[in-house]
Structure formats: C-alpha cells, structure tokens
Design a protein around this nucleic acid. Structure first.
Length: 930
RNA sequence: GCCGGAGUGGCGAAAUGGCAGACGCGGCGGACUCAAAAUCCGUUGCCCGCAAGGGCGUGUGGGUUCAAGUCCCACCUCCGGCACCA
C-alpha cells in the first residue's frame, strides 16, 4: 500500500482540483497577469499523441509556477474541431461529423484531464460550438464591412469609403459594386484544382503531375467563384510589426519570406501599332513626359515588374504569362495556333507542376515585338509558363546575362545574351551568367555606376519620364477563404435572387442579430460531380430566405478550418458572453497572450492568419493591442525510439549500409545486436557490416507510435510529464525512450520514499522525517535548488530544473534525519512538474491542500554562497592542480594561494612566469617560458 | 538551389569565453537476500600504466585569445522549411 501508486493518487487529486475549482481563472486579473496558451488541438479520431503533452506540460509548469507566485493566470484549452478528417469519416461511415467530433473531443478531454493539466475547464470551447460559430461569423462580417485605406495603412468601415464621382453618378448598383470591390472579404473568380472523378476540389499539394495524388484521376483548373480575404493589404504591417515580438528568429524569418516583400520598378514597353513604329514611339514618349506614368496600363503597353531595373539595357526579350490579358493582342496571326495550344497545356498543369524547377523551360514566340523605353529598339515577346500571372504584372523583361531563369530560357531558345553588369572582382565574361551586383556596362548614361547607385537613380528617372516608377511587390497572395465542403462555418452572406430566381449579383450580410447561421441537417455530405458545395443541396427552408420583401439564396461555401483558430485566444477570456465576442474590459486586461507554445508546423499559416484578423479587429476598435501573441515558442518534435536498420541482399545475406543498393531490403536490428565501431554502428556478430541508426517520425505505418494512455498506465501521468520535460530542451527534436520514462519514474519513487515510510502497512511519514533545524549544508542545498528551479522555469529550461531536483534528492536520500524545513519547500517546487505526487506528499506532511496554490518558496541569497571555493590552477592553459581559497578572495590572494601550492610550485620551478591570469572565484592560469 | 537549426561518452543530454561530460539511461562491481526482483552504495569519455601518473578528447581544417564546445573564416554531414515570386 504505501508504495508510490500513481494510479491511485492521480485520479484522487484530479477530482479534488475539479471539486475545488482550483484552477478557475478570474474574470479580470488582480495584480500581475499572465496568459499562457497552447495551440489547441484538432481532435482527431486517434486521440492524443505523445507530441501533444510536450508543449502542454511546458505551459502547465509555467502556469502552475506563476499561480504559486501570486500571478493571475489564464490557462485555457479548447478544440479546433472543424475540418476535413471529420468530414471524410462522416462520408465513409454515414455518421454526421458533429457526432464523431463530439466523441473525439470527449476522448481528448479525458486524456488531457488524465495528465493533470491545470486548465480552467469552464472555459473549454470547440470552434464548432454554435455560440462560437456565431462570433466567427460576426468577425467575418467585420471583415466584410471593412476596406483598407492605404493612406493611413488602416482598415476602416466600408461606409467611409470615398466614392469617386463617376461611380456615384452611375447609380446605386455601381456604388454597391464599387464597395464590394474594396471590402477585405470579397468574391473573386479564382482557378481551383477540380477533380471530376473524385467530385472535389483539391489543394495544390494533392495534385501531382496533373493527376490526383489519390487515385491518379485527371485534374483540371477551372475558375470558380471564391471568397477571398484581402490579407495583402496588411502585408506591410504584418511584416513590419513582427519586429517587436518575442518570437524565434527562424519563425519571423519564415513569415517574412512568406510575405516576400521585394522592391524594384514597374516599366512600360510600348506595343507599337502596325507600321510607323519609330514615330509612334517618339509620340508615346512625348505624351508620357506630359502625362506621367499612368496608374493602370492601357492596352498599348506591356507593363513589367523587375527588381533589377539596373539591367534594363541587357533586355533581349520579354515574357508574358500564359494567362496574360494582352496575349491576344500580342499573338501574331502566324503564331496564334501555337500560342493557343501552349496556353491550354499550361492551364492543365497545377501550380506545383508549373513551378517544378527540374523541368525544362518551355515557351512560344508570340511573333510580336515591343519597344524598349530607353533604347527604342524592338524586343521580341514570348509566352512562357515560368512567368506567373499572379505575381507582379504577369510579364517580365528578360535579362539572360543577369538572371539564371532568363539565362536558361535564352540558352534553350537561342536568344541573345547581353552583358551589362561587370562583376566587382574581374572583367565581365560575355555570354555568361552573373546574377550579383557590380558595375554597369553599356548602359547609356548609367554606364560605370555601381548596382546600388544605379538602382537608387533609375526609379526616379523612369518616373520623371513617365516610363516607369519604383514599385513594391509581395509573394503573399490574397487568402482563398472558401471551401466546397460541409464541415465548416457557413458564410453569413445572402445572394439576391431576381424575379426569375436567378442570382442578381447583389449580396447582403446576414443581420448580426440572426447569427449564428447554423449548418443545415444533411444526410449526404459528399461532394457532387460538379464543384457545387454540399450545402447547395440543403433543404429549401435553409437555402432560401426572404428579407425586406426580396428573396435570397444563402452562400453555400463554407469557411476553411483556419477561421476558427484565428481568434479562439480571445474567446477563452470571455467564453460565455452572449452579447459580444469579448468584453472590451476583459480583453484589455488579459491580452496579449504572454506565452504561446505550439508546433512549428503553424509557423506561417495559422500565425499569419490570426495576426491578420487581429489587426483588422484592432483597426476597427474591437481589441486594444495590435498583436495577439507576445512570446512564441515552438516545441520540438518527438520522434520514435532509435532504430537500427541493416540491409539484406535479395539472396538473403547482409549488405553493409554504405554499399547497399536500391534492391537490398531494409530490416530492423535489435539494439543489443549492434555496437559502435569508430563512426558507425556495426553488427556485433559481423563487424564488417554497418547498420544505419536513426530515430524516425512517429507514424502508424512505421509502427513506432507511443500511446500516452499506455504510458500513463505503465508509469503514471507525472512520469510522462516529467519525462517529456527531461528529454532535452523544449525546442529540440528528440527521440522517445521508454527506458528514459522508467528513469524519471525512478526519481519520483525516490521522492516518494524521501517522505513516505514504504515499509509501513498504512500511509505514514518516513521515520527519517523530523523537525530538526536543517544544517547549513542542507540549507545551502535547498536554497540552491529553489534558485536554480525558479530561474530555469522562467527560461523554459525544464530539463536542467529537473536535473537539479534529482541532485537534491540524491543528497537527501542517505540522510538519517530529514528536516521538514527542507522537504516542504522541495515538495512545493516539485509541484508544477509532478503535481499529483506533490499534492499527496504535501498532504502527508500535514500541510493544507492544495500545494498547487501554495506560496512559491523564497530564496535566501546568503545560502547561495559558499565560504570557500576550489579554484583550478592552470599552467599554459592546462589543468595542473586545484587550490581552496575563501569565496571572497581577490585576484592577488588567489594567485598567492596557487603559488603556495607545493605541486604548482614544483612545476613552476625554474620557469619564467610571463603572465598570470587570476579570475577571482574562477581560476588561475600561469603563462610561462621554457 | 536558397533559408533556418543541429553535430559533445554506448544513448538522451549539461556547460555567463574559465575544471568538458552535471542529471538520467545503459554497463560494471558491491551490500541486502536461500535466490531473484526491488532498494541502497560505489564505479563508468578514450588510450598508456600494476600504480602514482601521463597523453588524447566537443564533425573537419584554419584563426583570434593567457584560455575556445562556446567567438571568427572555410568545409563536411544530418534534420527541417521554402522553392521559376522576375
């Protein structure tokens, strides 16, 4: 009975905490606050994975630590429950997705509670809750009601959008269309990957070589009306405002790259009318000098974007994307057929195929030329799919001498290469590629300028001449926000129907009072054989509504899974509010999130999308901080156990790993049959045969998935928590080791025996536990432990905190008398890590429960210092001895003590001391001659 | 190709420019036991040596420094991400 039995004490304390609402967060913080947030999970049918508790334990330790230090702590948990797997499960089994989602949430909740996380369960939410959906839809309406004013770089109410006079004159419908074209949530025709055989739209990643990844069915790119969110309007702020955040630099970098800001210039090339090109060019230049560079290009020019306007004089051809609107104008009659064929081929390819770098460059000459704005010379125009219609202007000027893609294309089609930049370290090599910066050659008035200088001047010059202007571009595209799926939030949008029942094109928002728009009851969630969303098969009483005497059809697309996760951190603060998405006072008091921990897989999308939504809410005055997440940490991935892989030839014999060929068959080798030989592992029985050693990502197919339920059953929740924190640094990728779990279990057993008499029949204190005043050494030990653990938790260095607690236990275990005065603070600092065990020991020590809310022990500085210290003594940087000196000895005294040491004196005898480095409290180093 | 991150005992790892390997696993030895498990104690980087002791050691090669796992330069390997964005 008195053995450490996690299966007995863990449920006991979980029930106690629940019954006493130990971890309920205050509605408003009192004093110091901290908001500690996990990236909430998608409740998959497989249940919790051992990767989940890693981040969750880290945040739980911080939350429990801060509570014990008197901080008001917000530590909630919820579920990101919309999404494809639930829907596909529904299609397969015929059960409504809500049913399986609820079942999965129940499983996750049970598992999370089993691990003793100190969430305020009263605040738990799922993105699929109708009350939550209501406010997700409400925020969509905020986006719908907002336009971005570039002048102030801010989102503003659509009612404040200035209407140009000509639009206003054209009537109300024109004004409505104008407004719709400026909203942050707008509709657009966008090409999607439609797979008729599967009856669904596919993501780019799901299309390989023009056919579906699953099944190999043909996929076509068709334009489809889609909802888009104008995230590009916020590109600049999303990039700039990253700076103040306490995020890993790698994540900031990823977001920056994703936003992909580049600076350069837009330049117009005249498309000459047939006949009289030279005159037309002169006229055009004159006109442009007067009119300046137009906002939008007419159909008489080909507008390009370049980041290297300093290479303008090296242009030898132009390229337009296959989808470029001017392609019809540019296509010469003789080339029409070839161009049409090329365009069709491009349309069939997915983006992924088109951007496959390994592919040979392809393209077709349009038969037309445009006129170079600076040289007045004709330049041939090609169409090629290496130019993307969606970036820049969809057309480029090609400078093969200084751009590797253009170079490759020019080589393939035998086009000219003109060198206009000389490398800084040598002469230009005509006909070769040089993509770096240097000095301009053959560049008219700019010849001789350094690249940087050239770039600075040319933008302004082009602008003055009305031929171009400096420009900024982003890789970031507007966010395709609609899905042709069932299991997502319906859009709160109504499409007006005319008298014949056809869509008139006019749309209106659902009245906020009518939210939420709940999903209708459907028995068939399957995508059909047209791209119509499943909701288009909804019953008429859901699909059609009447407002103000007009008939409307509901929007039948649904929102993507990202929608719900864009703002859940706000709802946690005020989850039961029925009149607002969050009370502004509550928001102001708790936001921003102080610590956000989750996997790096969300480095870009989730974190970018939620920052975008947050900024819109901020601009519209609904939240008080411009950024939602102050400090972000990515926990590393937990891999499966280390595996050794040997290879057998088809004949059955072993093949050494470095000699293996593709035919050889990998086979797992048990760890006790290998040994290390030099750099490699080899078979113990055949040391000539090398084997590979590696830990792999956990996956069902590899069969190396560790189930947290099983670990809790075998070792207990506290052991699982502690082990995951002890494995190594939180942010590192690390392999699982069941032996390691049993190691920390051993530590918890020793903690137990420190306090509990294991030989007694009933639960009782160990006889060594006493009320003696602790010795100075013992006080030093406990205070150093408290100090180290306190600092390590703040630095999220949990593995070293645990190591220090292990040292403390190692010191205490042999003690015949163990003073309570050192045991009690130890149990308190153990509590955030192994809360169940700590509660049990705390109770046994006769302290009032719960230790979870006990006061964090204070460190007494005087116990952190020793009276004396042992100092290493080096000669020529090599360790030659040690001396013991008073802890406060200065450099001189330390040096004297070193010289007085007989061993050191002996080694220094007869040698000339050139220099002595004495660092008080650290070391002495003698530099000698001879 | 580009951008991150990482290479330290048999393994997971630790180390404000100042004694490399704390702590844990595993191994070895011992105590307890009829025996085993559990527990406790000791030991454990490699090489030479009976020992005292000595030498070598943080992916490789160079450099800065009294002193480098740590800073600088070049390279190698592994992991992760991005990838025709002009």
């Amino acid at each position: 009975m008195p053995r450490y039995q996690p299966s007995r004490i863990e449920p006991k304390w979980q029930d106690w905490w629940a019954a006493h609402a130990t971890f309920a967060a205050q509605h408003l913080p009192s004093g110091r606050k901290t908001y500690v947030l996990d990236m909430f999970p998608y409740p998959s049918g497989d249940g919790l994975h051992v990767g989940h508790p890693e981040g969750y334990t880290a945040t739980d330790i911080v939350s429990r630590f801060e509570r014990m230090r008197g901080t008001s702590v917000m530590h909630p948990m919820g579920f990101d429950a919309f999404g494809l797997p639930a829907e596909e499960h529904a299609i397969r089994t015929g059960t409504p997705p809500r049913e399986s989602t609820e079942k999965n949430i129940a499983t996750f909740t049970r598992q999370l509670k089993m691990l003793g996380f100190s969430y305020d369960w009263d605040r738990a939410l799922a993105t699929t809750d109708p009350e939550y959906v209501r406010w997700t839809q409400w925020i969509f309406l905020v986006l719908f009601d907002t336009w971005f004013d570039p002048a102030v770089q801010k989102g503003r109410p659509i009612a404040e959008l200035p209407i140009p006079a000509d639009v206003a004159a054209a009537g109300e419908d024109a004004v409505a269309t104008y407004r719709d074209g400026h909203r942050l949530a707008y509709q657009s025709e966008a090409p999607v990957n439609w797979c008729p055989a599967l009856g669904t739209v596919l993501a780019n990643e799901e299309v390989i070589g023009g056919v579906s990844e699953r099944g190999g069915h043909p996929v076509v790119r068709i334009p489809l009306r889609q909802w888009m969110l104008r995230i590009t309007a916020y590109a600049d702020r999303l990039e700039r405002e990253l700076e103040g955040l306490e995020w890993p630099t790698s994540i900031k970098k990823l977001q920056c790259d994703w936003i992909g800001r580049s600076t350069g210039a837009e330049v117009d090339f005249l498309i000459p009318p047939s006949g009289g090109a030279a005159e037309a060019f002169d006229d055009w230049k004159r006109t442009r000098e007067g009119s300046g560079f137009p906002e939008k290009p007419g159909s008489d020019v080909l507008r390009i974007y370049t980041t290297r306007p300093d290479t303008l004089y090296g242009v030898t051809y132009m390229v337009v994307a296959p989808e470029h609107p001017l392609l019809d104008v540019l296509a010469a009659p003789a080339q029409r057929e070839a161009i049409a064929a090329y365009r069709e081929g491009a349309a069939r390819k997915s983006d992924l195929d088109r951007t496959d770098l390994a592919r040979e460059k392809t393209g077709v000459f349009t038969g037309s030329h445009v006129i170079h704005p600076l040289t007045g010379k004709p330049v041939p125009v090609w169409v090629a799919d290496y130019v993307l219609a969606t970036y820049g202007t969809g057309a480029i000027m090609a400078v093969p001498a200084h751009d590797d893609r253009d170079f490759e294309f020019a080589k393939t089609f035998g086009l000219d290469v003109i060198t206009v930049v000389e490398p800084p370290d040598g002469a230009a090599k005509p006909g070769e590629l040089f993509a770096g910066n240097g000095r301009a050659l053959n560049s008219g008035p700019y010849t001789g300028l350094a690249t940087g200088e050239f770039l600075e001047r040319v933008g302004g010059d082009l602008k003055a001449a009305g031929l171009g202007r400096p420009a900024v571009n982003y890789k970031l595209r507007d966010w395709l926000f609609s899905r042709q799926r069932f299991w997502g939030e319906p859009f709160p949008i109504l499409h007006e129907l005319d008298a014949q029942g056809n869509l008139s094109g006019a749309i209106r928002a659902v009245d906020p009072a009518d939210l939420p728009v709940n999903l209708p009851h459907l028995t068939n969630f399957k995508p059909g054989d047209t791209p119509d969303p499943p909701l288009s098969r909804s019953p008429a009483d859901w699909l059609f509504v009447e407002r103000d005497g007009k008939r409307y059809k509901r929007e039948t697309n649904t929102m993507p899974q990202w929608a719900g996760s864009c703002w859940y951190y706000l709802r946690f603060l005020d989850p039961h509010n029925t009149s607002r998405f969050i009370d502004p006072e509550v928001e102001k008091a708790w936001m921003p999130v102080d610590l956000y921990i989750g996997g790096a897989e969300h480095a870009v999308l989730h974190l970018l999308y939620s920052r975008f939504w947050h900024k819109v809410l901020y601009d519209r005055g609904h939240v008080s901080h411009p950024e939602p997440f102050g400090k972000l940490v990515n926990q590393g991935m937990i891999l499966g156990e280390m595996e050794f892989t040997g290879y057998r030839s088809t004949k059955g014999g072993w093949v050494s790993a470095e000699k293996r060929t593709a035919e050889d068959i990998p086979s797992k080798v048990p760890a006790d049959q290998v040994e290390k030989q030099g750099e490699h592992f080899v078979l113990r029985d055949a040391p000539k045969i090398r084997v590979e050693s590696r830990a792999y990502k956990m996956s069902k197919s590899r069969g190396n998935v560790v189930n947290p339920d099983q670990v809790v059953r075998d070792y207990g929740a506290d052991s699982l928590r502690l082990y995951e924190m002890f494995m190594g640094p939180l942010e590192a990728t690390k392999p699982w080791s069941t032996a390691g779990v049993s190691g920390v279990r051993g530590f918890l057993d020793r903690c137990w025996r420190l306090v509990v008499d294991e030989r007694a029949d009933e639960l009782a204190l160990a006889p060594q536990v006493c009320d003696d005043p602790p010795s100075d050494d013992q006080l030093r030990e406990i205070h150093r432990t408290i100090d180290k653990v306190t600092r390590d938790i703040q630095a999220l260095s949990f593995n070293t905190a645990i190591a220090r607690m292990m040292e403390f236990v190692n010191v205490c275990t042999p003690l015949e008398r163990r003073p309570r005065a050192i045991l009690e603070p130890f149990v308190a600092i153990l509590a955030p890590f192994a809360p169940h065990l700590a509660e049990e020991l705390w109770e046994l020590l006769g302290k009032p429960a719960p230790v979870s809310l006990a006061v964090w022990p204070a460190v007494e500085e005087r116990w952190l210092k020793d009276d004396t210290v042992e100092i290493p003594v080096q000669i020529q940087g090599k360790l030659r001895g040690r001396v013991v000196v008073p802890a406060d000895a200065d450099a001189e005294a330390t040096k004297a003590a070193a010289l007085a040491d007989p061993k050191i004196a002996e080694q220094l005898a007869g040698r000339e001391i050139v220099k002595v480095v004495a660092v008080p409290g650290r070391l002495v180093n003698f530099v000698v001659k001879g």
